[in-house]
């Protein structure tokens, strides 16, 4: 198969953010490999998600629980629902292994989450570990490092 282009990798990251903004969560979860993870560390330059806690470290089952919950009639903290908005810098290709079809991109982003009259701005860097599975790009790990990951926040309801 022809090696994937840098543009195609960047396009994947942009489309992924748009899915989140449009709250197409089921489609979004399908972007992950079966053993894929979504990780938001709580410590600066955190290396371990297992013996150090995190804001989120979710496998596909936990992501599905979140997505189902967001649809629920008795999800009181999402009545009314939150909305979100991503602004991404152009993703940089940090690693490319065309033989293993294994790629890492790095993307600076501003993320806004709103609910009722409150709008909260977060600044972060997203690192995507992508692999090609049967010709399609999939997320093996999406790591979101908040610039102030160790600050005390209110509720973060959606995905950055």
């Amino acid at each position: 198969m022809k090696p994937i282009s840098d543009d195609a990798l960047r396009g994947f990251v942009y489309r992924e953010a748009r899915m989140l903004d449009e709250q197409r969560f089921d489609e979004w979860i399908d972007l992950f490999t079966e053993d894929g993870r979504y990780w938001m560390p709580v410590e600066w330059q955190q290396t371990d998600p297992i013996l150090t806690t995190s804001l989120m470290y979710e496998d596909k089952l936990l992501l599905r629980i979140r997505a189902e919950r967001l649809k629920g009639n008795r999800t009181f903290s999402q009545k009314p629902k939150s909305r979100c908005h991503h602004v991404l810098q152009a993703p940089q290709i940090d690693r490319r292994d065309d033989t293993a079809e294994d790629y890492v991109t790095w993307t600076a982003l501003h993320y806004i989450e709103t609910r009722l009259d409150t709008q909260t701005l977060y600044a972060a860097w997203a690192t995507h570990h992508l692999v090609r599975v049967e010709g399609e790009l999939r997320i093996k790990l999406k790591r979101v490092d908040l610039v102030n990951c160790d600050a005390a926040f209110g509720s973060i309801h959606l995905f950055m």
Binding site: M40, T53, S155
Partner: peptide, 26 residues
């Protein structure tokens, strides 16, 4: 044991916790 403790804390007590959200809401 620490792994379970750390996971419990994340799932229940983080600002991104789906359990914590509904407590804070009320």
């Amino acid at each position: 044991l620490l792994e379970r403790t750390v996971m419990y804390n994340r799932l229940i007590n983080a600002s991104a916790s789906v359990v914590g959200h509904d407590d804070l809401e009320v």
